[in-house]
Structure formats: structure tokens, C-alpha cells
Design a protein around this nucleic acid. Structure first.
Lengths: 331, 331
DNA sequence: TTGTATGCGTTATCAG
DNA sequence: CTGATAACGCATACAA
């Protein structure tokens, strides 16, 4: 159980097999080696139960085969999904994941980047909010949902298109008065475009709309107040709501129900993200689904690409609509 | 953006500061160093933007300050919670997490243990199902929810107590005919005791009960069949259900509703795990809550403890009941 | 207290 | 195609 009796090294294997150290290395790295030598080495490896030491390799090659993922947490189901798919994509490519949580602490975001660099990760994938994020120059860096500059690749869903899709869908479903609601950081990032897309589509279609946006930290009661203000003698001003995230949509729906409104009969609600109950069951609400798998694939292949210079600086992936019980039909 | 211009090393810092290599190392590791030297070194570190290379340190000290967490996935909200709290506990102790997903693949469980050892992690925390798991001898190993032997520490919630608590609570809430339902691996692990505790309490209280247990892979329809079989002329045989997990409880409740039964008016349901909607909102169902934070703390402090030999081999942590809308009252 | 020198396990360069 | 040997960056035992 204790970590004392030092593990066998390549030198041990070489001695056991009666060959040179370099030969063992070559066998392990699958390079050209004479058949008889290869067999002797493999036999010795078996006998000794040798496992190569990646610290030594990392020091020598300056590659760890490890990617750091910096993300707020894994409690939010969307982040949990992202972590999962990114890890799977890394696994496919035989890379490891160093997982770092920021808990939305902007200082920690920077600290974790430093830490990841000390650990000589081969790349960093980060979903952050710090307006003054220090982006390292000497390690491949990919951001999610946030565009910095053309020199740092950003992967995101088509948030604008998603907002627009939500508006069009609500109209198709018969809505005549809609509203957009969100709470989030003041930072302008890709998810900010959910509103833009929604507004643009409403304007284009001539669909009357309102926008209710709160900053992080604002009390939830502000939403309740907003909703109640739009309730006049038992009649609600909106028959369709597009909410910035599925989680907020869920919360809003609870309020609507307490106000005596039925969802989707009286008000139809569309969220954003594509969260399922318990991760795998039905969609929690009708929603614009982020293509998490594709986002993960894009992040990983980008961060691992040899020449980051000729990689697109903004990878925008298509979203889709999914029925989750809070709209009037599934399609 | 590319990873070429080699980062400054301790030797560079030493040269820049006009001191010896060892002195730099001592400053960095916070050992006794003369004030003037310390300042010179720190200044040089700043000037060069030096960050120590943990590959070098790992090779030299045979410690990586990294713990591997081996777990099925992070899509299941309970696992997501576990990952989160374990990571936070590691962070507190200045350790990193290497996250590995098994996807319930028993072969991969063993492979990941090998991989973690190659990566020279300082310890492994694992939640696995392989009946023939190869537990490494030379690295601290802690398991979650599964007891192997006295020599490998296991951390788990008090599953037996939780089952018993569920039975007692259902009785307090007025139930007269109850059932336990679960689906899971045939492996006998700590969660298996949920049934034992439930049955024991029912027997002790003289509460009539039935048990419906399915093996992993069985079709969900079996549960539907079971429920419908117990529906005789509009009357359901049970007024209380204890379900092995919150997720299954949620699924069962959908079936009950489709059968025209009201929850909690006609049937009260208690799940297990303590899952909240979107990770942070209300409990998804009334539930026996696992003390995830405490489980995480126990895993981390155990895996990092110097002498695993005098550590308890089974750490069993108390659960609690929480109202989640599927029982008739809170508290 | 500081400087010097060695070796951790590996890969890569050179000779043979 | 194989063997010997020199780094990689760091911590530490030992010398000053």
C-alpha cells in the first residue's frame, strides 16, 4: 500500500532482457527493432511488470499528453455535459484531462492558467468570465463561448441563430406577444448573442417583444416582479417566453405556475442549452440544444492541432430545437 | 502560440540573479534563505516570468501532487456532484485532479488504473464495478461505495441506514403498503444495502412490503409491468415506494402519473441520492440525501494520508431525508 | 547559509 | 539495427 519499493525502470528491463537501454525505449515506442530483441524486451517487461514513467518522458520530451480544462464547475448540468464530452474526445486521442474548477472566481481563472502551465500541459481549454484574462502565449489555448481575438480560437454554438430560431419557433407555435429573459454576467460573450438573434428575428417578423435582462447577483425577485407587472386582471401580457438558459426557464416556469398560469397552455416557454433530466432522460424544458458533442470535438481537435495559426478563430456550431413539454407541440 | 521558445529554467533564474541553482530551488520551495538572496531570486523570477516545471520536480521527487479520480461519467448528476466536491477538496490541499471516465466499461476500469500509475499519480480514488478489479499495491487507493477488503479503504454513505430511514419515514407519513424498486449491477456493493436496510426496517415495524429488483440491462418495461400488475380495479396496491435512486424514482413517477395515480396524494415516493434540479434548485424528488461533501472530504483525506495502514477500512457517513415534493409533507 | 554536483527515467544523438 | 551516452529541470546530499 505504501509508495516505497521503487518501481522497475527501463534500465531494469534492459538488464533483465540483456539488451541496451535504448533498445527498450525503442520497443516501447514502437520503433524498428529486431524481432528477437523485441521479444526479449517484451518478456522482460512482463516479468518485471514494468510500466513506463511518464514523468521521465515528460521531462525529456516536454509533452505531457495532458490537456487542462478550466470551467466553473460540474454541478451545472451543461458544464457537466461539456466536461464529459471533452474528456471522451481526449480519451479517443489518447490524452488525459487535468480538470480545474473556477467556481466563477475570476482570479482563480488566471491562477489556474498559471498552474496548468507549470504542469506543462500540452494545451488549455477554458470557459471563463474574467475580463482581464491572461492568455498564455506559449501553450495552445482554446476558449469556449467567448471570443478574444483572431489569435485565440473560440468554439461556440450558434447563439445568434439559436435566439433567432427560438423566436421563429414561438411564432410558428402561435405566439403573438413574446419576451426574452436572462440573467448573466455583464461580459459580452457568445451567449450574449442569444438575445440579439431573438430580437433580430422578432423585428424581422414584426413580432412584438420585450426584453428583461438582469445582471449576475440581482435578486431573482426582480423576475417575479417583472412577470407580475405584466399580469393585468388575470391576463398575462405574453404568450411566449424565450429564456437565456434552461435552468432559468425552469425557475421562471415555477413562478408562472404559482401565478396560476399554465405552461404550455397559457404561456409557451423555450429555454437554451438542451438540459435533460438526470442527464439522460427527457429535456427539462423545450429548448435550443447546444451541440455539445460537436463543441467538444472542435475544442479538442483545435487545441491539439499542430499549427494553431491556420485554424479558424471562431468555430460556430449549429443548434437545434427540441421539445421538452413547455411548448404546444413536438413537431 | 506555438510551443517553441523554451521556457526559462532554474538555471536561467540563477544566472539572472547571480546566485547558485540550489539557492533558486530553496527560494521556490520556501526554505531558509538569506533575505538579500531571496530578493534577488524573486526579482529574477519576475523578470524572466519563470514558472517551475513540474515534470522535473515529479521526476526528482516521485510525487506529482495529482490524484486520479476514476468514475463512470459526469452526466449522472450524482457523479457530477462527487467529481465537483472531490476536486474542491483536492484544490484545498493544493492537489490536482486527473479525471478518468469508465463509462461503466469494466475493462477500461482496469486500464485506467494502469494509466494512472504510469502517470505516477500520488493516489487513486475509484468508483468501479469490475468484479475482478486489479487494485494496485504501490499507490494509495480508495474506493467509493464498494468494499474490497480491510486493506483497501472504502468510503460510502450509510446505505443501510438510508434504506431504513426511508421505510420509517414512509410509515410516519402514513403508508401501509410499501415496495422497494431498483435496477443495478449484480455486484454486491454498498448501495446494495439500501434494500437490506429498507427490508429490515419494514420487518421490524411490521410494515408489509414487496421488493422489485432488476439487473442492469433489463428493459424498463419490466417496471411498468410490475406497477400495472399491482393496479386492481383502479386501486394501487402500494401507497409508498422507496426507489434505489432518484433518477429511477423520477422515471417511475412518470409511469405512475400515466397510470392515473397522483404523487404524493395516492402514492408517496422516496428516492436516494439527493439530486437537485439543475444541480442547485429543489430536490427532484423526496429523497435520502448522500453527504457528498463529507464523502469527498473522506476520500481525499484518506487517499492523502501518510499511513494508509492505520486508516479505517470502511468509512460510513450518515445520510438524511429531504423533502422533494413526492411525499405528503416536508420535515 | 550558499555553492556544487549528482541522479531521478526517459528520449535522442552518435558511433559501431 | 543496436549500444553507449548525453541531456531534460529539478531537489538534495555534501562541500565550502
Amino acid at each position: 500500500m505504501m509508495k516505497d519499493k521503487t518501481a522497475p525502470t527501463m534500465a531494469d528491463v534492459a538488464r533483465e532482457a540483456g539488451v541496451a537501454l535504448g533498445t527498450v525505449s525503442r520497443v516501447i515506442n514502437g520503433q524498428q527493432v529486431g524481432e528477437e530483441f523485441r521479444e526479449k524486451v517484451n518478456a522482460a517487461i512482463q516479468r518485471l511488470g514494468y510500466k513506463y514513467n511518464s514523468s521521465g518522458r515528460a521531462l525529456r520530451t516536454d509533452r505531457t499528453n495532458t490537456i487542462a480544462l478550466i470551467i466553473p464547475n460540474t454541478i451545472n448540468p451543461y458544464f457537466a455535459l461539456l466536461v464529459h464530452h471533452i474528456n471522451m474526445e481526449l480519451e479517443k486521442r489518447n490524452r488525459r484531462m487535468l480538470l480545474c474548477f473556477t467556481e466563477y472566481d475570476t482570479n482563480r481563472e488566471n491562477e489556474l492558467i498559471q498552474m496548468a502551465q507549470q504542469n506543462r500541459v500540452d494545451g488549455i481549454i477554458a470557459l471563463t468570465y474574467n475580463p482581464d484574462l491572461t492568455i498564455p502565449e506559449d501553450v495552445p489555448f482554446v476558449t469556449i463561448d467567448r471570443f478574444f481575438s483572431a489569435s485565440v480560437p473560440c468554439v461556440a454554438a450558434d447563439n445568434f441563430g439559436g435566439g433567432s430560431l427560438a423566436a421563429r419557433r414561438l411564432k410558428e407555435l402561435g405566439c403573438a406577444n413574446v419576451a426574452f429573459m436572462r440573467i448573466g454576467s455583464t461580459l459580452v460573450n457568445e451567449p450574449s448573442k442569444r438575445k440579439e438573434g431573438f430580437v433580430a428575428a422578432c423585428v424581422e417578423m414584426g413580432l412584438p417583444f420585450e426584453v428583461m435582462a438582469l445582471e449576475d447577483g440581482a435578486p431573482f425577485e426582480e423576475f417575479e416582479r417583472f412577470l407580475k407587472e405584466h399580469m393585468k386582471n388575470g391576463k398575462f401580457a405574453f404568450d411566449g417566453l424565450f429564456i437565456g438558459t434552461d435552468m432559468l426557464a425552469w425557475q421562471i416556469i415555477q413562478v408562472l405556475k404559482k401565478m396560476g398560469l399554465r405552461v404550455p397552455e397559457d404561456v409557451q416557454v423555450i429555454g437554451f442549452d438542451g438540459i435533460r433530466s438526470f442527464g439522460v432522460l427527457d429535456y427539462a424544458v423545450s429548448t435550443i440544444v447546444q451541440p455539445v458533442q460537436e463543441i467538444a470535438e472542435a475544442c479538442v481537435s483545435t487545441v491539439l492541432s499542430k499549427h494553431l495559426s491556420n485554424v479558424p478563430s471562431l468555430i460556430c456550431l449549429p443548434v437545434s430545437y427540441a421539445f421538452g413539454g413547455t411548448t404546444r407541440e413536438s413537431t
